[in-house]
Design a binder for these strands. Structure first.
Lengths: 107, 107
DNA sequence: TCTAGGTGCAACCCTTCGGTTGCACCCTGT
DNA sequence: ACAGGGTGCAACCGAAGGGTTGCACCTAGA
């Protein structure tokens, strides 16, 4: 899994909105998704392709329509990275506090 | 808190590396951070400024040096967004499975 | 005081990104 | 068959991103 792709995809508010919309509605076409937005269908397609490149969205053709759906599994990997990084810091902070306020004066 | 800034800052592998380095080493100057990297000190400074803009890093002047340190609190907010979004999807998937394989045929 | 190391600022380059437009293509329904 | 809606592709544009270089400034230390 590529953290670059996932974080990069989530960095854009329009893409986060598209992702949540897909999660709420289950599946939709680019045309449908573009309608309430102030941008073109083509722009939405580009955003969806970015999401797809991060494996956060997938598309399947049905007749002349292309239905997009969310695939939030990589969110878990990204969350894991965040929590692990933050947890490491918490542990380090805990050790630092121990060292500062702990029993022995020496570090 | 701005998810744009945090996710955007984490989208770059160099910035993630800088962040983890700061978390491991506690604090460092831009010159120190740039030394093992194949990029210029100025590039590192720009990356650190991006991290600072997302409130993921902070700097303080000490004499003629500027020491940078990590501030991973926003990671928790970003992780919360990820988990919440993923959890929503899990609940929806659970309901869908109930509707498909559950007792009553109507949704 | 003078030298050297660390920093900040500004200009510049090339690439990527977000977005638009125009057009060709294909599927659907009458 | 044919009109219409949905899609894909390509070109184009302005802005932002990542990176570099050059130089001025300031602080520490001899």
């Amino acid at each position: 899994m590529t953290l670059d792709g996932v974080f990069g995809a989530l960095a854009d508010p329009t893409r986060r909105a598209l992702l949540t919309t897909l999660l709420e509605q289950g599946a939709a076409t680019a045309t449908d998704l573009a309608q309430p937005l102030p941008i073109t269908r083509q722009a939405v397609v580009k955003h969806l392709q970015v999401l797809a490149h991060a494996d956060l969205a997938r598309c399947s053709r049905q007749g002349r329509e292309v239905r997009w759906s969310a695939h939030p599994a990589p969110l878990g990997d990204a969350a894991e990275w965040l929590v692990r990084t933050g947890a490491d810091w918490d542990r380090r902070l805990g050790r630092l506090q121990e060292a500062v306020s702990g029993g022995s004066t020496s570090a």
